[in-house]
Design a protein around this nucleic acid. Structure first.
Lengths: 141, 141
DNA sequence: AAGATACTTGACTATTTTAGTCAGGTTTGT
DNA sequence: ACAAACCTGACTAAAATAGTCAAGTATCTT
């Protein structure tokens, strides 16, 4: 059970972005250099973030990205959702193999995975981008 | 972020085993049939469970496996640990790339992943095999 | 003692996912 | 015009996953 780097990078990049997002847009190139993430990969990630309206792009020279919402309103859930980083514990929906169809008959541990999913999603739903920035500032002092 | 089927199968098989583990050992063949898991794969999994002393094997005709501890004492943590299903959120230990060495300088989101790991592990540590069996009995009624 | 059942081990492999790269754009400020 | 920076889609190497396969060994039952 592991987090993919796409999800991690998305969060890292957004924290970086949020910290420098005062007035001017932040270029992916800067984020790439500061965070050590491939520029091409960042572009893929930001394309998705833009489609979900988490960031806004500003094209042209001196362009870049800015947050589209307040840091407080951007939850980890939103970020992960945007980059398709989903919490999947089990998929017994399609094939009702061995009787698990999610309704009448469930596999022995169906409830467990549901619980786990909720447990993790709770965590993501509570954490906002602002929390993360705050955490960084505090540690820096 | 997803759970691998090895971890899922291990838990499913153990719940199945525990339910039938009255006096006689349970054969992998039976578990395979009931849970729809490949026998060969189960063997791989149980080999690991045995090494970690979660189950005990009884060879020969009418042989099989029995729990090596009380269901109450077997936590999900133990099971996942046995089959190498680890919760990995980030690995910035080896390469101190971009200054994250886990000590003096951490990447922007290092603490977040640590928190997440703890959050998930807490869940696994609290759930015992007995809890799962109990849950199944209750739903069955 | 024979045979069947069932555990044991290790090597092998197809498929899928991940983590990018690469190439070629388009937009817009100066 | 030109350069910075966004934008898009196709491609791919490497790793992980989810098994399969083959060849055992141990022990119970008869």
């Amino acid at each position: 059970m592991k987090l993919t780097s796409k999800g991690r990078y998305a969060v890292m990049a957004l924290v970086d972005l949020a910290r420098f997002d005062n007035l001017n847009p932040v270029s992916l190139r800067d984020i790439s250099l500061r965070q050590g993430i491939s520029l091409d990969y960042l572009e893929q990630i930001f394309s998705k973030l833009r489609k979900k309206e988490i960031v806004q792009s500003i094209r042209g020279n001196q362009g870049g990205y800015i947050l589209n919402k307040k840091a407080k309103e951007i939850k980890l859930t939103n970020i992960f959702d945007a980059v398709d980083e989903k919490v999947k514990t089990v998929q017994c929906k399609k094939e009702s193999k061995k009787g698990c169809n999610g309704k009448s008959s469930k596999c022995l541990t169906h409830n467990l995975w549901d619980e786990l999913e909720n447990h993790i999603n709770d965590f993501f739903e509570k954490k906002s981008l602002e929390d993360l920035i705050q955490d960084n500032i505090e540690r820096r002092v």
